[in-house]
Amino acid sequence: MVQLHHALQAQVSPLAQVCVLSFAPLPQYQAWVDGALFAHAEPSLFADTHFLSDESLQVYHAYGLGRNAWWRVYGPRIVWHYAKRYVQRQQLPKVRQDVLQRGGDFVIGADGRVRFAYVGKDQADRPPMDRLLAVLD
């Protein structure tokens, strides 16, 4: 996720306003940004990014993002990811939120209409960067 944000900022922010939404409460979200995100990426890259908290999931639901099925959340790619971390003796993340909540990526045009919509099949599925950039060009 951190690598995704780094790539997003470098390539997308010159072309579009970037808003990153989480359903974590504000203090928890702030701690993640200050810790996990800024530990791996230069904070100045995110100067124009809006980090928004949607604790009530109102906006997630308005965008049709409900909960995923557990067999999709823990599909082969995720199991493989965790297995690699386990073998490398890396600490597995402690999750405090709903792991089944779906994420997604949307581009809203200046006219207020959806220009791109992508909802991943599992936790690791995000849109290819070239598809995003093609919409923004």
């Binding site: 939404l21 402690k94 909540q101 994420g103 990526d105 809203i108």
Partner: peptide, 21 residues
């Protein structure tokens, strides 16, 4: 508080994160 769609004249990328880890 951020209100969208806004009148910035620029497209907006919305990234809905899953759980924080």
């Amino acid at each position: 508080r951020i209100r969208l769609p806004s009148a910035t004249g620029q497209p907006t990328l919305l990234v809905f994160m899953r759980h924080l880890a």
